[in-house]
Every structure is written in C-alpha cells, then in structure tokens.
Computed example of a mutant assay.
Amino acid sequence: MRPMLATRGDRVFPAPPTGSAWLHEVKWDGVRALIEVTARGLVMTSRNENAITAAYPEVHGLADVLPVGTLLDGEVVAFDDGRPSFARLADRMHVRDAARAERLAVHNPVTFMAFDLLRLADDDLTGRPLVDRRAHLEELALDEAGVSVHVAPAYDDGQMLLEATRAQGLEGIVSKHRDSTYRFDHRSKDWLKYPHRARASYVVGGWRPEKGVGDRLGALLVGEPTAHGLRYRGRVGSGIAGKAAARLAELLAPLEDATNPFVDEVPRVDATGARWCRPSLVVDIAALGTTGGGRLRQPAYVGPRPDLDPEELIDHESAEQ
C-alpha cells in the first residue's frame, strides 16, 4: 500500500483555502510512513512500500497498545531543539540493523507524528470523511501511550498557520478538505501542500571527484525525472563533505555505469571527469530557485531520500498539460 499524497497548493488555490470546509496541519520535515499492527507485531513501511520497521524501535511499543489490524498514516520526524531536523533524520533513514537502530535511538530519537487513521482493528475507515477519521485517531490517546507517537494537531485558520510556520522556520503546511476520503496511491486535490522552503528531490545521474583528492566525491550531478527521461538540473557541491560525502560514495558505488543517463546536454565543465551512475538514488537539494535555463541556483545537498523512487518524482500532471 502506498499512502495518499497532497497536490501542490498553488495549482488549486494561490493561498491556503479559507472556510469551515478545510482544516490545516503543519508540514513536517520528515519521512512519510504507514504503521500497521499485525498479529506478529508492528510493521512499518515507507511511501514506496519499503520495510523500515527495524529503523525506528521507538514506535514498536504501539503494537502493545493498539488492536491488531490498526493502520496509521503519518511522518517520522527527528527534532533538534524542538524543531524538525531532516539532517538529524538522515542518520536514521538508511539503518536496517536492529541493534544499531537501538543505539541511535538513545542519542538521536525520532517521533512518529500520526495524522490519519485508516483502519481500527477490522474497521476500514478510508471511505469516511477525514474529520471522522481524525476523531477516532484522537480518541486513541496516543500521546499518553508511552511511546514516541503524537497526534499531529489540526487548525482552522490556514493563513495564520502558514505565517506562523514561516516565522518559526518550519517546512510549511498541508490543507485538507474535512470531507475527504482516503485513496491509497493517489495524489489528491483534497489535500494541498504549501511549503516554505525551496527544497525538492532530484535524482543523481553522476558525480565528480574532488579536485586534487583522487576519487573522493566532491559534487553530485543531479536531474529531474520526466516522462521523457532524466533532465539535467545542475552540479551540487555545497553540503557534501566528511560523513555526508562518505555516505554518498557508499550509496553510489553499486550504481556505477559507463553511460550518461541524462537525456539533455550536460555542460562540458560539469561532464569532464564525471563518473556516471544508474539514475536510482534520490536526494534532497535546497536551492534559490532555478535559472532561465532550468539550472538550480546555489544548490546545496541536504540528504538522501531512500524512501522515494525516481518514478514518484515524475510530474505526469504537468506532462499532460
């Protein structure tokens, strides 16, 4: 099962919708996940259906407080001084060894912010309005369950929340229609996202060694997957050093390929000496927008996104317009 996704808000309304038909939530800077309680225990999956249960032992206790069959939707978040920190979460996302995850949980804990209840025991709630699902979710009193799970609060005033999250340096908000039903693997216009940060996910098509340091990774060559192939968006060197560079090198080593995966031209200054790779690693990049030629302006590497597949990034809606 893949979770329901939100549409970019500016494609529907230029600002968060107003009125009693909508509620608004903070857009958490984390990793989307579904949590299901089964007869064998808790099962946690990412938005592309990868098993991530071992990575987050903090939430395993939910299996002891929720009935078998219960299915939650939410986001795994790492906090730093009370604010969501994707950088801290990046150290946890790729861990699959249970013993290592237990050690990391002590010094770098995460919280699951639950914002939807899709099934309660054997009762399927996906066909009910969002307000009903949230009412059942709040009745579970997860904040008092003694595990690292909280119910994400909802607000009536979207513009107020947008301004407040901007002032606090948070990622943004999600506006949701109160009567919206839940459709797996569907991007809905009943859920609208309004992010503040100019951060997006791209696919790595190659990398360049650091000058004068042999084969040490110095910069990524990233692209945007489209219906017509991977289009080049620029070279990213900022934010890549130390542990980040070592981790990237580890992720890219098995993807090495002799063929340039980009369907458009990579400038010679970027292509010279480049090491190409199969376009399957997704990373998050922060940038000051794009140039007229579609290149990222002052891009900086944020972290890997093992929870995303390149196919998920293709904007099929724009391709059809």
Rank of each mutant, 00 (worst) to 15 (best):
R2F: 03
P3C: 14
M4R: 05
M4V: 02
A6D: 03
T7W: 03
G9P: 01
D10Q: 14
P14I: 01
A15V: 12
A15Y: 10
P17A: 11
T18Y: 00
W22R: 06
L23Y: 00
L23A: 09
H24M: 10
E25V: 10
G30D: 04
R32P: 11
A33K: 02
A33M: 13
L34R: 06
T38R: 14
L42P: 00
L42C: 06
V43A: 12
M44K: 02
R47W: 08
A51R: 14
A51H: 05
A51V: 15
A51E: 14
A54Q: 13
A55N: 05
Y56G: 01
P57A: 05
G61K: 01
G61P: 11
A63Y: 01
L66M: 05
L66T: 03
V68M: 03
G69N: 05
G69A: 04
T70N: 08
T70I: 13
D73G: 06
A87H: 12
M93P: 01
E102P: 00
V106W: 05
T111Y: 04
M113S: 09
D116S: 03
L117E: 00
L117D: 02
L118N: 11
L125N: 10
T126G: 01
R128S: 12
R128T: 13
P129I: 05
L130W: 07
D132Q: 11
D132A: 08
D132S: 09
R134Y: 09
A135N: 02
A135Y: 01
H136F: 12
L137S: 01
L137T: 04
E139L: 13
V151N: 04
A154R: 06
A154L: 05
M160N: 08
M160C: 08
M160S: 14
G169K: 11
T181A: 15
Y182L: 06
R183P: 00
H186A: 11
W191C: 03
L192N: 04
K193T: 11
K193N: 12
Y194H: 07
Y194I: 06
Y194K: 07
Y194E: 11
A198S: 15
R199P: 00
R199E: 15
A200F: 07
Y202D: 01
V204Y: 06
R208F: 02
R208L: 15
G212Q: 05
G218S: 11
L221R: 08
E224T: 15
A227K: 08
A227G: 15
H228P: 00
R231M: 11
Y232R: 09
Y232I: 03
R235H: 07
V236K: 04
S238E: 12
S238C: 01
I240Q: 03
K243E: 15
A245P: 01
R247Y: 05
A249L: 00
E250P: 01
L252Q: 10
L252S: 04
A253V: 02
P254N: 10
N260E: 14
P261T: 05
E265G: 03
P267A: 13
T272A: 15
G273H: 07
R275C: 09
R278L: 13
R278D: 06
P279A: 02
P279C: 08
V282N: 00
D284E: 15
L288K: 14
T291N: 02
T291A: 12
T291G: 11
T291D: 05
L296Y: 07
Q298M: 10
Q298I: 03
P299M: 07
Y301D: 06
V302E: 12
P304R: 02
D307W: 09
E311W: 00
E312S: 13
D315T: 10
D315R: 07
S318L: 14
A319T: 06
A319H: 10
Q321N: 13
